[in-house]
Amino acid sequence: MQLFPCPFCGPRSEAEFHFGGDAGNVRPDEDEVSADRWSSYLYMRHNQKGMSPSIWMHMTCGELFQLDRDTLTHSVAGSKALTEGGHR
């Protein structure tokens, strides 16, 4: 059982969190999005070995945040809120 640090609630059990995907997988918003670009956004994952930034939702407070975590050792380097100034 890993401990994830929610930027708003502090360290909590991983069972309280929901995975939200790789960080930086930005939704293509331009008018004409190619099929390749769209399918890459939907399905292509880096499955990165080592330190990897990912998005999680803390289900008990409802906040999304970025977690920097090593996929090999499961060590957590830190987390940060996605909005400036944290909770608003």
Binding site: H18, G20, R27, M57, M59, L64, R88
Partner: peptide, 15 residues
């Protein structure tokens, strides 16, 4: 509910 929260925080102004 989780889906709405996710897109709210991702694309909209939470204020």
């Amino acid at each position: 509910y989780a889906m709405l929260e996710e897109w709210r925080q991702d694309r909209f102004d939470r204020r």
